[in-house]
């Protein structure tokens, strides 16, 4: 499904601020797999997703998605294959556009934008139905601007929009990190429903170890631009937060305390 071969990425290469975010990373994700990615700040998690999505090109390595080498394609050309939810709830929707307009934009992901109507009546019915499943009452607010919604509501809408056209791979970049715990729980339930219900191939970055343990069938810990740990199946089910913390400290012997924040353990 997704295969990353020797992926490397530098930032500010050749300057004193040079940072190697990805260091010859290899990763293979099978069809229908739900992979949680954890790692300390600067481990390269977001860079990984951004390289797959095409926000910037990798400096070395190949990205194969559904048999296509997409490494050199601009972001908008990969969008046909990729559904994406950002950490910032404001990034996923257009505040000045209505809920139905936002959904119509998402319903055309990867398609040519023509001079045909931006929204069709048939679509509205489908949007209403999909929204009603969220249980947030948004199905009666199709004509409300997305900017009127709360952060949680906007993130729920974004998640729905990312899966409106079935993505070959779904990329979730700490999509609950900016929300309060209750709302985050709601969004994670929705994530589970959408991903498991649709058997979507998914990579989810999280800072929350408990989340990483309870979601998905595979857990990858990144460190300095490489895959440090990779557990799946029963091996993953036996893992505890304590195990992860131990691995984390082994990987970061020089930062005893401040490397692991409360947010990572408690989330």
């Amino acid at each position: 499904m997704l295969r990353l071969e020797g992926l490397s990425k530098w930032f500010a290469k050749g300057t004193v601020n040079e940072v190697q975010a990805l260091d010859g990373l290899d990763l293979e994700v099978g069809t229908g797999e739900f992979v949680c990615v954890i790692g300390s700040n600067g481990a390269g998690k977001s860079t990984l997703l951004n390289c797959v999505a095409g926000t910037y090109p990798p400096d070395k390595g190949r990205i194969l998605l559904a048999g296509e080498d997409i490494g050199g394609r601009p972001e908008f050309k990969r969008a046909r294959l990729i559904g994406r939810v950002f950490q910032d709830p404001l990034l996923g929707t257009c505040a000045s556009m209505t809920i139905e307009e936002n959904m119509a934009l998402a319903n055309r992901r990867g398609k040519r934008r023509t001079l045909r109507p931006g929204i069709r009546d048939l679509e509205r019915e489908r949007f209403r139905e999909a929204l009603s499943k969220l249980g947030l009452g948004l199905e009666d607010r199709l004509k409300d601007k997305a900017g009127l919604l709360s952060g949680g509501q906007r993130q729920a809408l974004t998640l729905l929009m990312a899966t409106l056209v079935r993505p070959t791979i779904l990329l979730l970049d700490e999509h609950t990190a900016a929300l309060d715990p209750k709302t985050a729980g709601l969004i994670m339930d929705l994530t589970r429903d959408l991903v498991e219900g649709g058997k979507l191939t998914t990579i989810m970055i999280t800072h929350n170890m408990q989340q990483a343990l309870s979601f998905g069938g595979r857990l990858v810990m990144m460190h300095r631009g490489k895959v440090l740990l990779d557990y799946s199946g029963s091996e993953k089910e036996r893992l505890t937060v304590q195990d992860l913390l131990r691995h984390f400290h082994e990987a970061n012997p020089l930062i005893p305390d401040n490397g692991v924040t409360d947010r990572m353990v408690l989330g």
């Binding site: 999505a53 972001e75 908008f76 969008a79 950002f86 934009l105």
Partner: peptide, 10 residues
């Protein structure tokens, strides 16, 4: 309104 979002939508 949101160039990053619309780019990610193709």
């Amino acid at each position: 309104d949101n160039p990053r979002m619309i780019k990610s939508l193709g």
